[in-house]
Simulated assay, not measured.
Amino acid sequence: MASHRRPKQPSRTRVTVLTTAAAAAVALSSQAANAAPSEKPSKDEVKSKVDKLYEEAEKATEKYNGAKEKQDKLEKQIGTLQDNVARGQEELNTLRDGLGSLATAQYRSGGIDPSVQLFLSSDPDDFLDQASTLDQLSGQQVEALKKIQEKQRSLAQQREEASAKLKDLADTRTELGKKKKEVQGKLAEAQKLLNTLTAKEKAALDAEQARASRTSERSALDTGGKSASGRAGAAYSAAQTKLGSPYVYGATGPSSFDCSGLTSWAYAQAGVSIPRTSQEQANAGTRIYSQSDLQVGDLVIFYDDQHHVGLYAGNGQVIHAPRTGTVVRYESIGNMPFQFGVRI
């Protein structure tokens, strides 16, 4: 006999789950179909982003340079203080030996005064303030004890100063490490962007920069080089010998430079010492606020935070170390936000 059972119906819950999953799948497929494909940034967009990163890296570089200069100065100062302390301690020991000799002689001639024994075994400061104690000592002993007191105070002050500078040095080294990491991070990010360009696009960017540099060089040499004179002219001439040298952050020559490294090196060749960083160089001489008053070899400060510097080359051009990935070259002064010139 045939069975008349009704076939088992799927549960409502299962139907609902399946329907929901199917709807979601359809929606995702629809979104994927309608979504615009991810667009690779254009050469100009990459250049704009990279230029911004290089500018940020240069800001950090000048702060790195400032911390590095401070570290070098502190190390020299600490070394001098430590040498002074060592010499002072030797002098103090000699003074104490001399006082000991006095006491020995006094003992041999009739016994040593108890107060002298105290002076030899402890800090004499307390005793020197007591007139009754001084009255019991000879003039020679008093003079020796005063010298010991003065030397002790001087040594204590120098040790305290050295200790403070050592703490400052530790803080400066920490800051230096942070700035170095910041610079390297910006450069790595810029390189990552450049790596998205094709070989043809990279070549096109390089060609654009080379053309701009050649144009600036011709413009500068038409009038600028002929008017160079004095120590500014000598600095400018020195910078010209480094055309084509690579930019390296923190470098001061002779084979690679950052912006303030080039200008400080160039002036050093002219026998003039100027500060290391662009911000310090901005205050190193007489400021020239009109571009028309600039002379060849004047420092030219760019950006409102003064993080970039070059040397005026004449005819509206500068010679400078622009940024990572470039070389020392000529460039129009109008390509960067001019702040003022500085005549050394």
Rank of each mutant, 00 (worst) to 15 (best):
S121A: 14
Q209F: 04
K63C: 02
S101H: 13
R87L: 12
A238H: 00
V142L: 11
K63A: 11
Q295V: 09
A235G: 06
D97M: 09
S42W: 06
Q31E: 07
Q295K: 13
K186I: 02
Q269T: 11
W265V: 04
Y289E: 06
S260I: 05
S229M: 06
Q9Y: 07
Q279C: 03
L137T: 07
T13S: 14
S255I: 05
Q71H: 06
L262R: 00
A251M: 06
R218V: 10
H320S: 05
A321V: 08
E217K: 09
N283E: 13
L262N: 00
S273G: 04
T277S: 09
V46I: 15
T198H: 03
V46W: 00
C259T: 03
L262K: 01
R6N: 13
T80N: 14
Y54E: 08
S11V: 08
R218F: 09
G253F: 00
D51Q: 11
A162C: 11
R287M: 05
G316T: 03
G230T: 12
K47R: 15
A204Y: 01
D126T: 11
T80D: 15
Q269G: 10
R231F: 08
L197W: 02
S138R: 11
E56M: 13
E45K: 11
A103H: 04
G244F: 03
K226Q: 12
Q291R: 14
V328R: 02
N315A: 14
M336Y: 12
E182S: 07
N65M: 11
G88Q: 02
S264Y: 01
S38Q: 13
Q130P: 03
Y312D: 00
K226V: 11
R218D: 08
Q106H: 08
K151F: 03
F338C: 14
L118H: 09
Y330C: 06
S121C: 05
S154W: 02
Y312I: 08
R211S: 11
Q9F: 09
Q191R: 12
A220C: 10
E39Q: 13
A2D: 10
T324K: 01
L176V: 04
I288S: 02
K179A: 00
E143Q: 13
D293K: 11
K63W: 01
S38W: 10
L294P: 01
A220G: 10
E208S: 09
Y54P: 00
G111S: 13
P254T: 10
S138Y: 08
P337E: 07
H4N: 12
A313F: 04
P41F: 14
S292M: 07
A188S: 15
G314K: 01
L193V: 09
K59L: 10
K180W: 00
L262W: 00
S101V: 14
P322A: 09
S42M: 10
K146T: 09
S256I: 02
Q31S: 12
Q339P: 07
E91A: 14
E58V: 10
A239M: 03
L81S: 08
K146L: 15
G110F: 08
A156Q: 15
I344Y: 11
P7G: 11
